[in-house]
């Protein structure tokens, strides 16, 4: 073609030769788990069952070995999960679980007119708190093999101070903004992220609005702006003026 760039675009992939994707997932989640365990000793991978009809089961990684496992999934010629499509957070707050337990207790009772101590089975409700955690969920696809999604998850120890997980930004660049978003909205700290700042909320915002226990502030009006500092300086200037001239300064 005469025009530069006119022939720069070629057409490819004609027809519908591909097998349906559902059938193409030859690798079941168990096979992938076995492959990981063979390649990364002590990986500690666990299958999390998904009861919904989508049947997208997931692998729970332990944060200690997660980077090695993820690198294997990306670089292995057979699996080749080269596209990290979606990264997101989920909040699972502390759960209070009430259990009914039968306990034997000695009770004073009148038996045939005489007070006696009798063992009796009593039902007691015991409450225990299952600790919550923050979860990071990854959806991987393979462009090379046309497979997916492979769902990975990682969990933090708790929701307050031990909220670190390893960053995948070094392996897949697509995690860069998405991990920043989760850090912003959920408060998971990705260790090793090159530029971990808030993405959507403003600097100086304190809380993590996507957490289940987030309380919306009463005052929606206040938002720190660049003008605050200017106004403060103007006020200080007004204060420093001799009395009688404040009005003049304000104008």
């Amino acid at each position: 073609m005469a025009l530069p760039g006119g022939d720069s675009v070629k057409a490819g992939n004609e027809g519908n030769k591909g097998i349906r994707q559902q059938e193409q997932i030859l690798k079941t989640i168990e096979e992938i788990k076995a492959a990981i365990e063979a390649a990364v000793p002590g990986a500690g991978v666990e299958i999390i069952n998904n009861p919904s009809p989508s049947a997208q089961h997931s692998l729970l990684l332990s944060p200690a070995t997660a980077l090695d496992v993820a690198r294997f999934l990306r670089d292995d010629a057979e699996l080749a999960f080269d596209l990290l499509s979606n990264v997101t957070g989920v909040d699972w707050p502390d759960k209070e679980i009430a259990e009914k337990i039968k306990v034997k207790r000695s009770v004073k009772k009148l038996v045939e007119g005489i007070e006696q101590e009798v063992d009796e089975e009593v039902e007691e409700v015991r409450k225990r708190i299952e600790p919550g955690y923050l979860e990071s969920v990854y959806h991987l696809y393979s462009i090379a093999k046309g497979r997916g999604p492979l769902v990975l998850r990682m969990r933090t120890t708790n929701r307050t101070d031990k909220v670190e997980l390893p960053s995948f930004t070094f392996l897949w660049r697509s995690a860069e903004f998405q991990e920043r978003e989760i850090f912003d909205l959920y408060g998971i700290v990705y260790t090793g992220h090159p530029d971990l700042r808030r993405l959507l909320m403003w600097e100086g915002f304190k809380d993590h609005p996507m957490r289940k226990d987030y309380v919306e502030p009463d005052d929606f009006e206040y938002e720190p702006t660049a003008h605050d500092e200017v106004l403060k300086r103007a006020e200080a200037h007004r204060q420093s003026l001799p009395t009688g001239q404040e009005g003049a300064a304000a104008v």
């Binding site: 392996l171 660049r173 850090f183 408060g187 700290v189 260790t191 090793g192 971990l196």
Partner: peptide
């Protein structure tokens, strides 16, 4: 960062795929 948790610095040049 704003949560008050120190993040560890890592030498980026050594990481692969970055």
């Amino acid at each position: 960062n704003s949560t008050g948790i120190e993040t560890t610095a890592i030498d980026f040049a050594k990481r692969d795929g970055w």
